[in-house]
Amino acid sequence: MNDLVSIITPSYKSKKFIEETINSVLSQTYINWEMIIVDDCSPDDSNHVIEFYVKKDNRINLIKLDKNSGPAIARNKGIEVAKGRYIAFLDSDDLWLPQKLERQINFMKENGLAFTYSSYYIISEDGKNIGEFKTKEYINYNTMLKTCSVGCLTAIYDIEKIGKIFMPLIPKGQDYATWLKIFKKIKYSKGILEPLAMYRIVENSVSSNKIRAAKQQWKIYRKVENLNIFKSLYYFIFYAYNGVKKYK
């Protein structure tokens, strides 16, 4: 029996895309998974869609938070209750290709890796392919400080090797700060250069505002990683340069 993978999906106003997201998990060739969807007090009726799938497949679970708390707390709640050896992340508007889990779990086992990631396609709000994010084959803590080469929808880590890693409670960039925490525990990681997922660009999404993202990047350097002003400037120059050429 393959090891259980726990898929963490925060849900807020997700009615428009959540069905497609769930179906991309149901289509996985790797079948030993649990999908933990954490409702962050969504005001729409996305839970009606989710509950339909909960009844349809007992691998899908819905947890409802008592108050709107943001994606970090929602993801952390999912991580807290997860039963799998592996933790994977998939937001409620993103998609996985059918062999994503199978390819990545096999890759982790074959290479003895605690953490992996992959390249991914970029799609528009209506699902059209508009580009591709090509990740780096090797990443360590220092290269991650220069640019985030890990899309949250592709990240998987092994609890048996590094324990449960929870996301820091900061306003934005929680996933990036989490990868930095992981790289403090491991020397390096390898990624799959083949795209295994589809990241949806949604208008007014948190990640679509580049100025806010840059401000948060600076805060992570200074407040989360506690880098001095000179190191922060050094890495921020790389971050700004890489941000310009990130997507082809």
Rank of each mutant, 00 (worst) to 15 (best):
T154C: 11
I182D: 01
K219E: 11
G131L: 04
K109F: 11
G112D: 04
I130Q: 08
Y121D: 10
M144R: 09
V224W: 04
E225F: 09
K210F: 11
Q217W: 05
S189T: 07
G191Y: 11
F115M: 04
F133V: 12
K187T: 07
L113P: 00
K100D: 00
S92R: 02
Q104G: 00
N106K: 11
L145S: 02
I105S: 01
E160T: 01
I162C: 05
A114T: 00
K146H: 02
E125S: 14
K190S: 02
A177Q: 07
W218Y: 14
V206N: 06
Q104V: 08
M198N: 01
W179V: 14
N129K: 15
S205G: 12
G112M: 02
P168L: 10
V150K: 02
K164L: 10
I170F: 12
Y120N: 08
L95Y: 11
G191H: 05
S124G: 00
K190H: 03
I186M: 07
K187V: 00
K210Q: 11
Q104P: 00
V202G: 01
L153W: 12
N204D: 15
G127C: 08
D93T: 14
R222T: 14
E110C: 07
S205A: 15
Y176F: 15
D91L: 13
I123A: 12
A88S: 13
Y138K: 09
M144P: 00
K215M: 07
F166K: 13
E137N: 03
L90T: 09
R222I: 10
T116C: 14
